[in-house]
Amino acid sequence: MAEGKIVKALSGFYYVKEGQTVYQCRGRGVFRKKNVTPLVGDYVVFQAENEQEGYLLEIKERKNELVRPPIANVDQGILVFSAVEPDFSPILLDRFLVLVESKDIMPIIVITKMDLLDETTKEQLEQYVQDYRHIGYNVIKTSIKTSDGIKELLPLLDGKVSVFAGQSGVGKSSLLNAIRPELQLKTGAISHHLGRGKHTTRHVELIEIGNGLVADTPGFSSLEFIDIEAADLNLYFPEMVKWSEGCKFRGCQHINEPKCAVKEAVQAGDIPVYRYEHYLQFYEEIKDRKPRF
């Protein structure tokens, strides 16, 4: 018996990496009985039948799992947003941040196409960058023409499993190509190098970039707050967690409660107004969510 990590899943086979060797493994019937599906990123116990094949015996406990893309044990989410074309959207970024925080995944914000900004919009965007850095987020700025920011991002991938996420057209593929040119990803479709045409199976694969692993799939196709309760939403706004220690009531939702330190911080300019407005909007969205049975 040996232990390894699933780095690819395709057509009922799980490719398990142990050291420098990758074994093509099948799952045991026991997983089906327990209704458990092995996922890319899983740490597993497997039995090698020869030097290339084996079968899975056990899936180790996961620290997190995503449904789309189906992947487990993600360390960080690289949230790629462009400065322009499409324009930078703080509400969409906050939506991604909440989803990532709720899965205990460390977010890194990357803003691309900085060199395409005019002076006015540049000033506005720099303010957003300062705001998010002040909250405690790592924000990296990159430009199309130079490798600015790439050198900053590469060491952050070391020893981690990362998922790249963001709208289409923001430059995710260009970014990965700049980090590892031999991938030659077609811009506009992160996974074309896997030879996926219309009739091939969609699959997730962890590819080595630098000294880390990156999920070769566009992350987070669903941006709905399916697994988040309204009462927990404020836990995924780090600046609210910080200021809420001063609230009069425990479990304060920072909406209608008196003596709320979070609302005072918004009024004093210590929490950006737009962040608080997004919080209220998301809160209402979760409250209005149809119950699932």
Rank of each mutant, 00 (worst) to 15 (best):
M1N: 08
E3R: 15
K5M: 14
I6A: 11
A9Y: 05
Y15H: 14
Q24G: 10
Q24I: 03
V30W: 03
V30D: 02
R32V: 02
V36Y: 02
P38A: 10
L39F: 12
G41T: 08
D42R: 12
V44M: 09
V44R: 11
F46R: 07
Q47A: 11
E49A: 07
E49W: 00
G54S: 07
Y55D: 10
I59D: 06
E61F: 00
E61W: 04
R62D: 05
E65C: 00
L66E: 03
R68Q: 09
P69H: 11
P69R: 11
I71N: 11
D75V: 00
Q76I: 06
I78L: 09
L79G: 08
S82C: 05
S82K: 09
A83T: 03
V84L: 15
E85A: 12
I91H: 12
L93Q: 10
D94V: 00
L97Q: 02
E101F: 07
D104R: 13
M106V: 00
M106E: 13
P107L: 04
I108C: 10
I109N: 10
I109P: 05
L116H: 05
E119L: 06
E119W: 01
E123M: 11
Q124V: 08
V129Y: 09
Q130H: 01
I140G: 14
K141L: 15
K141D: 04
S143F: 00
I150W: 02
I150C: 10
K151S: 14
L154E: 07
P155F: 03
V163H: 06
A165Y: 06
G169C: 06
V170D: 10
K172G: 11
S174P: 01
S174R: 04
L176A: 07
N177P: 01
P181L: 05
E182S: 13
L183Y: 01
L185Y: 01
T187D: 08
T187F: 03
A189T: 04
L194V: 01
K198R: 15
K198H: 09
K198I: 04
H199E: 04
T201Q: 14
T201I: 00
H203L: 02
L213W: 11
A215D: 04
F225H: 07
I226M: 11
I226L: 13
I226V: 14
A230G: 04
A230D: 05
A231Q: 13
F237R: 04
F237N: 01
V241D: 07
V241T: 10
W243N: 03
K248F: 14
F249Y: 15
R250S: 14
Q253L: 13
I255G: 11
I255Y: 10
N256A: 12
P258Q: 11
K259V: 05
V262R: 14
V262N: 13
K263A: 09
E264S: 14
D270Y: 06
I271W: 01
Y274D: 08
Y274Q: 03
R275I: 02
E277Q: 15
F282H: 14
D288R: 09
D288V: 00
R292Q: 04
